[in-house]
Amino acid sequence: MRIPPRYSQILAVGLMGAATLLTLLVLVFVVVFVLGKGLPAVNLQFLFGMPRDMGRAGGILPAIVGTVLLPLVAIAIAMPLGVGTAVYLAEYTRETRLTKVLRFGTDCLAGIPSIIFGLFGFIFFVVMLKMGWCLLSGGLTLAIMILPTIIRTSEEAIRAVPNAYREVSFSLGATRWETVLKVVLPNALPGIVTGVMLGVGRSVGETAAVIFTAGSALRLPATMFDSVRTMAVHFYILAREGISAENAYGTAAVLIISILLINLATYGMMHRMLAARTK
């Protein structure tokens, strides 16, 4: 039996609407559930206190410090590489066999699961280069992991800069590099920052690649060669080893709020920069 088009439309749209609603509800549920269970545990002592008894009691200050430092190290390494790559691909070369290979490499790197990054970081940085579980090993591993994101968003942003700006710059006697520095990069900045923030967000939430490279020491790091534990790792250990459900929820709440803030900041920054440009 054939369903008349009008009814099939109502049926299809209804089903798809329900699917969309379900998706949104799941998001809301995850956030509300974690915040509801976790926020009661969060107070100043929890945020700025040192953990006691493996995290069963006390605060999560070392994990917060680790969560701030590790992405910073990763960005400091990945940003020059990624933006430099994007500038090269967009400004300094035409589409050749070489750029196709480079792009293919970036695409492949983007698809590698984080556990493989963890394995690689462990065997290469931790074991072979004898750096041990530390901030630098973890930062380098994460840098490789977020590199494709930064390359892609930066290249897209650079290509979106109107060609007329480049022509004007050249016609006023600028070299290509001067044009990149003075015209292209400033105008591509919102896009580049977005890519970097996406990378930060991924680093903050990452566990598998971090736990095997940065370790999980619950101390404040003094140097790049000290092990750190991020909030995501701390949460995982508390939850997985059944150390403290209460503190696990608390850590998860802080983690989710941080990630929401990072995302909001990304949007805010993009809008402010876009507004400033047309002012």
Binding site: L81, G84, V87, Y92, L102, F120, L147
Partner: peptide
């Protein structure tokens, strides 16, 4: 240009490094 080209190899080099070591 040369410096940027070297940077552009970073992702491919990382990929190869990962593949080789695994």
């Amino acid at each position: 240009r040369f410096g940027l080209m070297l940077l552009a190899f970073s992702s491919l080099a990382s990929l190869l490094l990962i593949a080789v070591f695994i």
